[in-house]
Amino acid sequence: MDELRKAIEKNMEEFGFPVTIDERLGTLQWVDMRELRLRYVICIENIMPFFEGMREGKLITTKCKKCGRLFFPPQKDCPSCRDSEMEWVELKKEGVLETLTVIFVRPPSFADYDPYTVAIAKLDDGVKITAWLKGDPQKVKVGQRVKVEISRRKEGYLMYELVPVE
């Protein structure tokens, strides 16, 4: 993009407009001068115990007091009984690997990471969890045991990940 910016600046000076010629088609393009940067602010107030649990190395989630339905990701309300009386329960941090992929072409916001493995595991408590899988993806198989660990990310925040059980 830096090259493009330089080319535009040159073209603005020479021709009067922020334009460029498309490399493949040779057609004239106006390059937007208004760049949009987005960063969302997302409310986690009602699932705060989930984050507090991670600080203690625990994976906790919501369970409806009335019907016993277990939710992961945790949610404030139970749609089954239309009730919001939830209790926070600790999940056993083990389960079975259901599927995985290795993300080679990463979004720019993950450019600082090497290709990473994303997997889904079914925990012994019955809920499923999506997370990064630690280690060599070629050494794991669908159906094998995995555990959940909480560790600090490169960005500096805490997050859960899946780890193969030998």
Binding site: T99, L100, T101, I103, V105, Y116, V118
Partner: peptide, 20 residues
């Protein structure tokens, strides 16, 4: 936000499960 899934990635998890 936390796991950087891409569109090919979501469907790749289907592809892996189907293969298995």
């Amino acid at each position: 936000e936390n796991f950087g899934l891409t569109f090919p990635g979501y469907y790749a998890m289907y592809g892996t499960a189907y293969m298995a």
